[in-house]
């Protein structure tokens, strides 16, 4: 097992008075893929969004507990959320490229960090698109609108856009749930490649996807972390009956 990258201690989250996460604790290792599974509304996406403080944007959310990334509590008062989000990239369920060219989408992050040198930007754009395995498909249409690409291509553009700001962690919120099987396979291959350099945390509805892509799997149910272990153990020999029931499709 690799070193711990993210350490969560007793994290609870409320929407108003509704308790959506109940004292969740877990360790997420570096440069591995960790999958969160569970039925709709179990808190897995909410939990994912606490890791780059995306829930800060929603009114009425209150959070207790601690999340350490590289031994720094990201809910500490002195933390700059902007820097945190540069370090912890996020891929959303619905691909959301900006209504700009492919190039401008990828260069968005570097530009807001003040990089304006064209050669450097060109280099970052090419490198990021290659890393996201979409360079060959778009290298001749870098200045076409990103919205003219297919859904699967758009999602890889979004991944490339995240990579362009040099994150260390990538959060993926059901990144393939709106894609066809071929595009899904490409995203999964990409995840496999990316884990060599990045810590990846993926929320998925699709248990086969969790089994195929992840090293560790965590099952959430009604805001509780039920069980977390190596993926092969979760899928072959889970410790809890509830996990076995969910994996075999008896609930959820």
């Amino acid at each position: 097992m690799n070193d711990i990258k993210v350490k969560v201690k007793n994290l609870s989250l409320r929407y108003g008075t509704n308790l959506a996460l109940k004292r969740v604790s877990m360790d997420i290792p570096e440069k591995m893929v960790t999958a969160f599974i569970g039925p709709s509304g179990c808190g897995k996406s909410t939990f994912l969004r606490t890791l780059n403080r995306m829930n800060d944007l929603i009114d009425n959310v209150s959070i207790e507990g601690e999340v350490f990334i590289d031994n720094t509590n990201i809910y500490d008062k002195n933390i700059d959320v902007v820097n945190l989000r540069k370090k912890v990239g996020m891929i959303f369920q619905k691909s959301n490229p900006f209504a700009k060219s492919v190039y401008d989408n990828i260069a968005f992050g570097p530009r807001i960090n003040g990089i304006s040198n064209k050669n450097i930007l060109d280099e970052i754009v090419e490198r990021s698109l290659k890393q996201a395995a979409i360079w060959e498909e778009v290298k001749d249409r870098l200045f076409h609108s990103a919205l003219s690409l297919s859904g699967g291509q758009q999602q890889r553009i979004c991944i490339a856009r995240s990579l362009a700001v040099n994150p260390e962690i990538l959060l993926m919120d059901e990144p393939a749930s709106a894609l066809d099987p071929i595009s899904t396979a490409k995203i999964e291959e990409l995840i496999h490649e990316l884990k060599k350099e990045y810590t990846i945390i993926i929320v998925t509805h699709n248990m086969q996807q969790a089994a195929r892509t992840s090293d560790l799997t965590a099952l959430f149910y009604l805001g509780d972390l039920i069980e977390m272990n190596k993926t092969e153990i979760i899928f072959s020999n889970p410790a809890k009956k509830q996990t076995e029931d969910y994996i075999s499709g008896r609930f959820g």
Partner: peptide, 19 residues
Amino acid sequence: DMREASLALGATKWQTIRK
């Protein structure tokens, strides 16, 4: 989701509004 995409890349609120 456009705003979230921008914020998730480390843009500040004003950068998100402006860009």
